[in-house]
Design a protein around this nucleic acid. Structure first.
Lengths: 265, 265
DNA sequence: AGCCCGGCTTTCATTGAGTGAAAGCTGCGG
DNA sequence: CCGCAGCTTTCACTCAATGAAAGCCGGGCT
């Protein structure tokens, strides 16, 4: 944690940014320095530069917060606001039809990041936050993103311990492997009470020219859920978006070809 | 343009981020280096570090784009996503009632930044983009933000040449000064064809404990507009949000306590 | 009031991370 | 086959960054 020589300035600047989280979006200099693993004067100087540029802002209370300028730049991320803008009308359609929670997520490394969420007032409460992260092995969107991720990513997820959220969370790598194969076979994923005991989600992939780039899902109360009825809806939304993203028109919508082989990869 | 000694590493990293814009969200290394004013090898090294962290991403085509990780961090900006989350229900209400464009903006230095926009399908097309910037002296939100900005900011805006967008754009500092005084007096701003010849906008301030922090507006076709009818709506929305942000309940509205206007709300 | 303490800011001599010119790649078009 | 444009790597030099230590400030306690 201490700034042993060999640490680049850039990494220190990034560590300062990474110190912020949804749980603590405002930090004093001391907290900031500790979280970034930097000596106080160093944190002070770099933070001052970030404030001058607008990447951070400093409140009346002396606390640092993420600055608007960084939000502006971040909004240029194609997989962030770009994807959201494209997808929003489709998400809204899906919401109109179902009045359930609609979610849009992409994979980042070994986790997923929620890009957008439309929360029905009467829908099951979900714990997700736009910009928030979650594990790949439990949610509907996560299973889809994992199922179509590069083998290397899958192996790394399978190798690590799989956190348990409920009694139904899949924590056995072998079982997860089977589940992912099934997702690829049918072209959608169902997560039944694997995150919370009241919710079930159905998710489908969104493809661009180079494969699956995002996933869309509906989250509903598990006891009024009919996954088989919801799947076509979610898949259709996924396909609309895939087309908009320039996915090849007949990329076996649900899955790779259909030869009698299940365990692709 | 050349990186004269005296330039901090941090400033170079930030220059790399600032090189991206809505008009060019994907850059080759050479473009990136040129825009950031950095020698190629320097840009290359810093960019590589940013990619490793996730602040930038590099596509198949070798171009750099803003990375999802930066979007995530940016989404922690209180004046960005934070404000948006808070305001969205109110914006939606306003949209439901009017089916016109609804905009939410904050001031950043001498410009405004759009935080959210709800575009009615049948509403006048507007040129704004979430995350985009605009001058303060023309739009409704801009006039509000300027009217309640610190004197020093107002003076700097008034001192600079005021860009003309249409024949009705206010470009005379003296006239603008009068206009701002009027905004403070009545508590809302009207921009009638000052940005485009087909649109009119009505905007109201949003206050927190420490003054005006944002503005909300309706943008309508100028020929079906009745500013006097829209103003109370927009102001009411502004007040709801002000209360949510902890503005004092009877906050000498920017200047003069409102004259005996109806609905105190 | 005076004191103390924690958190922040500034100073200053030291040093290694950062630098850019130049030389190597690599892939494409002629 | 060659040449060119755009990218990547090398290498010796140097100045931006560093952190220990000292100063500063405010507010809680005696």
């Amino acid at each position: 944690m201490d700034s042993q020589p060999g640490r680049s300035v850039t990494s220190k600047v990034l560590a300062l940014l990474a110190a912020f989280s949804p749980a603590s979006p405002a930090l004093t200099l001391t907290e900031l320095a500790r979280r970034a693993g930097l000596p106080l004067p160093t944190a002070h100087r770099r933070a001052a530069e970030l404030v001058a540029w607008g990447a951070l802002e400093r409140g009346e209370d002396g606390r640092y917060r993420i600055g608007l300028r960084l939000w502006e730049v971040g909004s240029l991320a194609p997989r962030g606001l770009g994807l959201r803008e494209l997808a929003l009308p489709v998400l809204e359609d899906l919401y109109e039809v179902t009045h359930e929670n609609v979610q849009l997520a992409v994979r980042q490394d070994l986790e997923l990041v929620f890009i957008e969420r439309i929360a029905g007032r009467h829908a099951v409460p979900v714990l997700t936050r736009v910009g928030g992260r979650f594990a790949l092995h439990a949610t509907g969107v996560g299973l889809v993103l994992l199922a179509y991720a590069p083998t290397e990513v899958q192996e790394r997820v399978l190798a690590a311990p799989l956190e348990r959220y409920t009694d139904l969370t899949i924590t056995d790598p072998r079982q997860l492997r089977r589940c992912l194969a099934e997702v690829r076979r049918v072209g959608y994923a169902v997560s039944d009470r694997q995150v919370t005991m009241d919710a079930l989600s159905v998710a489908a992939p969104i493809r661009a020219a180079d494969g699956v780039v995002a996933a869309i899902s509906l989250v509903v109360a598990h006891d009024r859920a009919d996954p088989l009825a919801l799947a076509p809806l979610v898949q259709a939304a996924g396909r609309v978006l895939s087309r908009a993203l320039g996915a090849p028109n007949r990329p076996a919508p649900g899955r790779v070809p259909l030869p009698p082989r299940h365990g692709t990869q």
